[in-house]
Design a protein around this nucleic acid. Sequence first.
RNA 1: GGGCCUGUAGCUCAACUUGGAUAGAGCGUCUGGCUUCGGACCAGAAGGUUGCGGGUUCAAAUCCUGCCAGGCCCGCCA
Length: 605
Amino acid sequence: MKKIKRKIALYLSKLTSKKVDEIYLSISKPKGGQADLCSTISFLLAKERKTQPAQIAKELEAQLKGKIKELDIKAEGPYLNFYFNKNFFTSLLKKGWKFSKKKKTIMVEYPSVNPNKPWHVGHLRNALLGDSIANLYSFYGFNVLKLDYIDDLGLQIAQSFWGFKNLAADFKAYKNKFDHFVGIQYVQVAKKFQEKEVEEQVRQILKQMEQGIQPTSSQVKEFVYKVLKEQYKTAYNFNIFHNLIVFESDIISSIFKDGVEKIKSSSILKFQPTGQNANCWVIDLSSEKDFANLTQPQKVVIRSDGTATYIAKDIAFQLWKFGLLEDKFFYKEFDCQPNKEIVFMTCSSGKKMKFPAAAIVVNVIGTEQTYLQKIIRFCLSEMGYKKQAKNYIHLSYEHVTLADKKFSGREGSWIAQNGQLGYSADELLDECIKVALSNIKKELSIEKREEVAKAVAINAIKFWFLKTSPNQKIIFDFSRALSLNGDSGPYLLYSFVRAKNILKKAELKPKLFSDYEFNNFEKEFLAQAAFFEEILEHCIKNFEIHPLCSYSLELAEKFNRFYDNCPVLQSDTKTMQMRLYIVDFYCKLIESIFNIIGFVVVEEM
RNA sequence: GGGCCUGUAGCUCAACUUGGAUAGAGCGUCUGGCUUCGGACCAGAAGGUUGCGGGUUCAAAUCCUGCCAGGCCCGCCA
């Protein structure tokens, strides 16, 4: 698409006073679908030529006609419209797309859930966003590393650990999963925490965790590991995989010191001998326009007792990602994932590994942390890492909420109540599988039907979350999430299944004929397919996935129309082979998209 | 006080970064289509003051500006 647009722009620039780039920008796909491509250059020229735009369009049409062999050109009103022709379509079908391998590494961090609860539907949104962005970049040729950051030193963990040690376990967790068990118990702990005595005990645990005092420290690590294992079962069920898990405790014990030295040695960090923040190391934000009118323009990085705030830890971690700190982590295997890839984790003693430095860092974090993320980017920039600051991406998303309240671990609002369904990712998936199962064709074996139902359910949920823009708040509604019709994952999957079916039944091989006359259904489908690269690059540039979702819906819709109106197997040999080629082309294209948005691909449903 | 995000059909959303033709989908409502490659589909109808006002422009949902409504944030918590 870029090529053909550039070609148009080149020709037009020769005919007019306008530069190629300016003309290139004037070319786009008309939203009303009046043509395949359209240039609004006539409007730009109308002023200087003092002529009607329609007149100019007509002149350009006459001068351009027949010059570009892939396009038919027509002036329609003031618009210069372009229509893809036979040459364009056969070339598209023949070449498809190839994306070159890039040398750059991108690190994507998600979902970084506290290890004291199961994933609820909000965490799932985070994970799906991160995973699809990682797939997108990987498809485009980047080297991708998927990270998960686990805060194993927080107050919440100390609380949950206290509960695990001191409270009776007389309740049943969903499917006996330990993460659910801990999550439910946390509601009790949060209440108990109001008692002074309990709070003191929890604080004591927290202190021991931070200072690595045994046996508490090891016991907490064991506890965290157990919860994490269960959380990862959920991830695997959704086909979400990682490369590396980084624990906060390991950051503290390895790279953190170097990180702080690095920040201190840059001029941004200042020691405050007196005043409100006496004996703290702070960053002064007051000079920055972005941080105008803060109630507190000084941000504390090192507390007066010498310990570090979240900001310091995070900067150290981000510096490590960009390869700006010596890698003092030790690593070992956490698990071999169902995709056969090993996910590693940091640890206090293990082996040394070498991960490539990131050129781009993407962190999927809720929108409420925008301010903090801005500070971190500001610090990177002020420390002299301008390029890294620019490539430090906070992929922010709005939260998934309930109609009347927010999800709260403390209140346990994600937990099933009075026999009602809860809002954990596990329950959502199980429920969706039930709905999917009742729709699957009966001829399949029981095992096959269960496998397919799971795939349909995963795809339905993923698509439902990913199709809306991340800064749109999602009010969670089971009936919508479980929908299998309309603008949905199953709609896409169904079009693929039908296409595959044709290919399976065909007795002839697909074949491309360069003299084939395309009908309108074929043309409309192929014209839509032609924009794949453009959409993909738009998503890459903006770290977005939802435009690819709406694109794939339109593509499937065009294919379905073709399917309904253009018989393949009943046609004459040439038409059949050519249409088989088109069907095969669709299968490959939509399968690429499936891989990006993280669908589980099945060929029957 | 300031910053970020949101406001589009009855409902859920897309299009805004890059201004362009009749503002697109799905759900719901109504009408039609299986002796035909799988009906989880297709064809059609109804449904809009793009929160409100002003400005820029040949052209504004889109850019600028002033309001209104809702959410989030501005800690020696993370």
